[in-house]
Amino acid sequence: MECRVVINSLSDYLDGSLAAQEFQSIEAHLTQCPPCNAVRVDLTQITLAAKELPLRTPSRALWIRIQNEIEIETAVPGKVEEKKVSWWKRVSERNFTFTLPQLAGASMLAFSLMVFGMYHALHRDPQVASQASSDTANPILPMEKDLQFKIQQKASQLNTRRVSWNPEIRTVYDNHLQRIDNSLSHVRQSWVTTRDTDQQKLLMDLYNEKLRLMEDFERLGK
């Protein structure tokens, strides 16, 4: 039997899908042909390793995104379209039914909450920096300041842009932002007390998620 033929049948051989006669002639070849047998050994190794590949883990903020998406859907049932690509696009494509005065109050409240949160984030920094050498009650992560700065910049850009948004978009935005902010402050608090690395990762994910939210809504205005 030719080596090329044997090699081409190796997967069928390994998966047990060969007829008895063919199986035997390949087996006979393998016992006499070290190169072909080496390929068999390798393919066996590959198939065995494939069965034991470890599970991979996505970013911890993924659940927030899923929850947001579902929330938007359940908020306006019947407006769901299967082909929509992302939730921000969905937001931009929807027919909005609320009136401006109805929502102005709600979004102003959410907005002031956001400003409040931002104020705290900003005013915490110098304090932390000044105590950086000692074990502070409010430690700061290496990338945190950077992210907070980026978020602050985005926020001020969005503030000028948001006037052109539809009121419902503003509410949706504010709700999402508030949810992320809530989680941020909880996770941050828990990290400050535990210094747990999982909490730390989650905290960074949340900052990035917040930035991503802002960037998504930034695109709405374009």
Binding site: I64, R179, N182, H186
Partner: peptide, 9 residues
């Protein structure tokens, strides 16, 4: 963290 995310907005 998931339980935290699960807090109703």
């Amino acid at each position: 963290p998931l339980a935290l995310f699960g807090m109703p907005a």
